[in-house]
Nucleic acid binder design. Structure first.
Length: 262
DNA sequence: ATGTCACGGGCACCGTGA
């Protein structure tokens, strides 16, 4: 069973890439971020025709998240939650669903713009609310994955040396990432030996992808019960090399599915 | 190099967000 996270930066623009990628990789669960479309504009028919089911939490212009499941292997996403309960938020950044007994939480974490800005304060409040809510989710779902665009590079090796901005690498953001890990989650990517300078996002400008100037900000954190079933976690750079790509590449987690509770 | 995209408003291109 493969679970992926991918910030597509406009689902409308990236739909052909997404459909090609689903057909090629047969990924079972796909968490999408930055849909930039309202629910009524969600391309459900195309996605269902590709053999997937989808639940989504959309917003015009900004944000928007979805969980896709391959119908043949996973059926429908169940027990869907949109946004963080008890956290007032106009922005559509969270969707959660249960897939084959795994609680899948898909998040588009706030960017934060600049350390100390109003948007940064929102990012930190949002992270605290997410952490509080997930504590309860973990109490009722031993098998949980938190997948998404975290907009946090957790360690120095996750940020290109050229990255001078404090945002995404600041101490408070990394402490918030640490608070999520302290809930009992593990960064699936770091369970394995990885190439140096592994990133998941590259700025569109300055030929950053060609020069591999990027950040690793897209993550899949797994609960202890899921961790023992993780057999691989990789960044799939192929879609970033296409014409008109998203600025993010998908990150894909592989589970040995024989021991998943249903 | 304030360098690239995507979007909305509104119909040419500019402001915003990333």
């Amino acid at each position: 069973m493969k679970i992926a996270t991918w910030n597509v930066n406009s689902l409308k623009v990236r739909l052909p890439h997404l459909l090609d990628w689903l057909a090629t990789t047969q990924t079972d669960v796909v968490c999408l971020q930055e849909l930039k479309c309202e629910d009524k504009a969600f391309p459900l028919a195309d996605i269902e025709a590709a053999g997937y089911r989808a639940v989504f939490n959309g917003q015009k212009t900004y944000n928007g998240v979805a969980i896709l499941t391959r119908a043949e292997t996973c059926g429908e996403p169940l027990d869907v939650v949109r946004n963080i309960p008890d956290f007032e938020d106009e922005q559509r950044r969270i969707i959660a669903a249960t897939v084959k007994g795994v609680r899948v939480v898909c998040g588009y974490f706030p960017n934060g713009q600049a350390v100390g800005s109003e948007k940064f304060e929102y990012k930190m409040r949002w992270l605290a609310a997410l952490t509080d809510w997930l504590r309860g989710e973990l109490a009722t779902h031993s098998q949980l994955v938190l997948a998404g665009d975290y907009n946090i590079a957790p360690e120095d090796r996750d940020a290109t040396p050229e990255w001078q901005d404090e945002i995404h690498v600041s101490v408070p953001e990394r402490e918030a990432f640490g608070a999520l890990v302290a809930l009992g989650l593990a960064d699936a990517f770091r369970l394995f030996e990885q190439p140096e300078k592994s990133y998941s996002w590259w700025d569109y400008r300055m030929m950053a992808f060609r020069r591999n100037i990027g950040l690793r900000i897209d993550h899949l954190l797994v609960s202890a019960a899921l961790r023992e079933q993780v057999s691989a976690c990789v960044v799939d750079q192929a879609p970033r090399k296409l014409e008109r790509p998203s600025d993010h590449a998908p990150v894909v987690l592989t589970l040995t599915s024989d021991r998943l509770a249903v």
